[in-house]
Design a binder for these strands. Structure first.
Lengths: 358, 358
DNA sequence: CTGTTAGCGCATTCAC
DNA sequence: GTGAATGCGCTAACAG
């Protein structure tokens, strides 16, 4: 990496490095018109490219935003990533990407790497885990992030706050009303569906999944329905497929005339897709033999059949808002529970074919 | 960003900065055991986090890999991104992400940003454009990258080489046999399909699309079939949808008894999905009223119905290989056409339900 | 094996 | 308005 330096440009232009710096990057003082042109030409002819590392070192601001996701190939995360990218571009920053497979240990590692790179902000998009086995890693993650924020770093988190991390300057959370929305969804389904409810959730302790399950059960109760049975599996398409295979077997062994078909609520859309795939593979139809609903309204759903009922979340916007919020002036009033000022994420229950006619 | 520095750690431990550096980061020389422990403790108690920017400046190596894609929310790119991410992690680097909406101008901008950040390598995943209107931007892009490589940067490109960029040290291309695979697909379809062929391609001048169209036509010719009509539209789901809408109208106005249903080849899977969606919306069925085939075999296809015929490409592996190749020792022999040594990307024609029974 | 001395490339106080 | 110092935090040659 032996590119030409500011000093070389300055020498060629016959000015001081300071002047060259002033013209090449927008300084407060505007250098002389003639001089400026000379410097620009010198830079051009040398193919000068400012060294962002050196600039960062001198200015103590890197223009980097670190993004932590579970899996970039997952449509949920790639949609959020798009929003983060868009906000970053708007704020003239670049995004550093890290994937973690969802483990707090991986998140801690990524956070450390971002801290080392002195990212201006870190955005964490994956769900927290409250599982006992993750508690040690969670503490380390919290410690890492606390230090990061104390050193002036900004942190934006989608959904639940980091476990063990106290409210502090530079730390913002973007609340996602998973519980309320799941409750609404349950109420809507209960109104049109007679059969029993089954919930296919992620691993016990995965915060987002837990919130959705809780809200759903609550909504069911509010409608005077018994609590749904809950199946725990991986929070992914294949997790849904496995659960769907189980459920299909159960449906098959059921006397044909025994009551209404069940309504299955999956913790997210990719799980719902997996469930439908499994049912279909066993010769069952949706919504004929079972209704299925998901959560998120990812892009894939648009052309998936049967059209899946779900809860729409503005994923792209979530990515934008959490990024913008993290970058926002930390001195700005930070209302209740470190929520991000002036931005409220709202979702929409969308009933579609997969839960029709029960 | 006022984290503690190496100097502070050194002082607390009562050693020189050099020694502290040696123990905290793996240097050639291993410091004394007792000293090492003292330094580590000091670092721990101060919450020291090495400043990667400063390290990069001193070592002239940033540990950064710049990835340029058209759209990170597109499953094709997010799958490749996952591969890049995995290779980067393996090589202990981080990935910087840039999205460009597919314009050479955007790519040039991203390349410049990466060059400024002194990324160890730049990986470009999007298709090139040979359109006349992009020629100026292409030149700028080539100039930017040429300078980058000349300064010691590494460059890996998926598919076609950068237009106007000569072979040079550090520049590697990962060839993707689009043309051959499209030819194979055409041959396979021609063998089972009687009706006329239609190609729904991306914009004229989009290299990947052009290659696939060319290969497809060639395959048709090889099978003694007339050339297919080619429709140009956006290289996206919505582009496919638009074309599909047009085709549906045409099919509807066709006398019911006039020949076999057409076979539509889409330039990529998301377009194929759009086409199917449009046909379905107009009450037409696939493959009943028209057969449809795509390209890439993206993850979404797994649960899409009807199952789409396509050409499988190892997207994740493409991301890995292009990254590893770019990072590889540039002194290694670089066979024919700057192809990456020892790695050959191969695809597979996969005929499925969407082109069955014509 | 450890400490000292120089930069890496740039932004930014200050004097002029 | 411009130039001359100084330092950002760290690594890499040297010398001891």
């Amino acid at each position: 990496m032996a590119a030409s330096t500011l000093a070389e440009v300055a020498k060629l232009a016959g000015v001081s490095p300071a002047t060259a710096s002033r013209v090449l990057n927008g300084s407060a003082r505007t250098p002389g018109a003639g001089i400026a042109e000379r410097v620009r030409q010198a830079a051009e002819s040398l193919g000068y490219v400012a060294n962002a590392q050196a600039q960062a070192l001198a200015k103590s601001s890197t223009g980097l935003i670190g993004l932590i996701v579970h899996d970039i190939a997952d449509p949920y995360f790639s949609a959020i990533a798009q929003g983060v990218q868009s906000a970053a571009r708007q704020e003239r920053r670049m995004v550093l990407l890290a994937t973690t497979d969802g483990t707090p240990a991986g998140e801690k590692e990524a956070a450390a790497a971002f801290a080392a790179r002195r990212a201006d902000a870190i955005v964490i998009a994956g769900s927290r885990s409250t599982r006992a086995e993750d508690s040690a890693a969670n503490s380390e993650l919290a410690a890492e992030l606390e230090r990061y924020c104390r050193n002036g770093g900004r942190l934006g988190v989608v959904g639940q706050g980091i476990i063990g991390l106290p409210d502090m300057a530079g730390y913002r959370t973007l609340p996602v009303p998973n519980e309320e929305l799941a409750r609404e969804l349950a109420a809507a389904l209960a109104a049109t569906h007679e059969g029993p409810f089954v919930v296919v959730a992620g691993p016990d302790g995965l915060a987002t999944s837990d919130e959705r399950v809780r809200g759903f059960q609550d909504g069911l109760a509010g409608a005077g329905r018994p609590a749904a049975e809950v199946l725990h599996t991986a929070f992914s398409r294949n997790g849904g497929f496995d659960a769907g295979t189980q459920l299909a077997a159960r449906l098959a062994s059921r006397p044909t005339d025994r009551g209404e078909p069940p309504c299955i609520f999956a913790g997210n859309d990719v799980m719902a897709i997996g469930i439908v795939a499994a049912l279909r593979k066993q010769g069952l139809s949706v919504p004929g033999d079972a209704a299925v609903a998901g959560f998120d309204d990812i892009e894939w759903l648009r052309d998936f059949r049967p059209e899946l009922s779900t809860v729409g979340l503005p994923l792209d916007d979530i990515g934008r808002q959490v990024t913008l919020g993290a970058l926002a002036d930390p001195s700005a009033a930070n209302p209740a529970a470190s929520g991000i000022t002036g931005t409220e994420i709202t979702g929409t229950v969308r009933l579609r074919r997969s839960t029709e006619g029960a």
